[in-house]
Every structure is written in C-alpha cells, then in structure tokens.
Amino acid sequence: MSILRTMGIAVALAGLAACSVERPPGGVQGDPVRGKIALTQYACQSCHLIPGVPGSKVYVGRPLSDMGRRKVLAGAVPNDQAGLMRWIRDPQSVDPNTAMPNMGVTERDARDMSAYLLSH
C-alpha cells in the first residue's frame, strides 16, 4: 500500500470520527449532522456553549448541554422536539421578555437543530 493511500485513508477515518454525532432518541425526527451545521450557520455558539460546536467560551445564554435530560424549556414549555422547535423558531412566543432573538430559523433547520441538541 502506498504512503499516499495510507495517509488518505487515515485522513478520511479522522474526518469521520470528528463528524460523529450521537443518534437522537426514539421518535425524534431530523438530521442531527445537518443540525450541527445549522447551529453554526445561525451563530448559536456566539451566545451558547454547545457540545461539539466550536466557539468562544461565552455565558450569554444557557449552555445547551444535556438538552435531552431537561424537563422544560424557559420554565414553561415541555422539552420535547415540538417544544424545542417552537423555542428555536420563536422564543418570544414562549417568553416575551427573553433576550434570545428570533433568528428566522426555518422549520427544517429547527427540526435538525433540535435533533442534534436532543442527542446530547
């Protein structure tokens, strides 16, 4: 096996390991890999610490680790995929006084983002 081929295989395997995303719980729809990308595209890491998403160590918004273990969001909404999607898409409908802005997140992006967050 040539050195270039060996290096290529090593790089490909490293890339797959870096991209690994846990599976979301049963009943959760969406693509968590795409959700991780969407979280960065909407710059969620500029206010939140998000597992697996690089960003600065900020403490503006609550860290988004252990989302799958939380019972409620914003003290009022059940922490299921529908509730999380509602919060992501229109946080002011849940808490009119929240500092979280409405980022114009599409339904598909919210589904994928919630699939990623609920898998961590």
Rank of each mutant, 00 (worst) to 15 (best):
Y42C: 01
S65A: 13
V11F: 13
G75N: 12
P63S: 07
A43D: 14
G52L: 00
L49D: 12
L64Q: 01
V28K: 05
S56N: 11
G26Q: 15
L39G: 04
G75I: 03
A38C: 02
L39Y: 01
G68P: 03
P63H: 02
Q29C: 02
G75Q: 09
Q41L: 13
L39K: 01
D31Y: 05
G75K: 08
R69Y: 01
Q81C: 13
P63K: 03
P51Q: 08
L64P: 05
D66Q: 13
G75P: 04
V77F: 09
A12W: 09
D80W: 04
L39W: 02
R62V: 06
L16C: 14
R89S: 10
Q92S: 12
G15S: 11
P51N: 12
L64S: 00
H48C: 02
V77R: 11
C44E: 00
D31H: 05
G30S: 06
Y59C: 00
D90F: 05
A82H: 11
C19S: 15
L73P: 01
V77G: 09
Q92A: 13
A43S: 14
C19D: 14
W87G: 03
L49Y: 01
V60S: 02
Y59N: 14
W87L: 14
C47Q: 01
S65E: 12
P78V: 15
G55W: 04
M67Y: 04
L16D: 02
H48Y: 00
Q41E: 15
G27M: 08
G26E: 15
R89Q: 15
C44L: 07
T40G: 12
V21L: 05
G83P: 09
G52C: 01
R34S: 12
V77A: 11
G15C: 13
G68E: 01
Q29V: 08
D90A: 15
P91N: 08
R86L: 15
K57R: 06
C44S: 03
G26I: 10
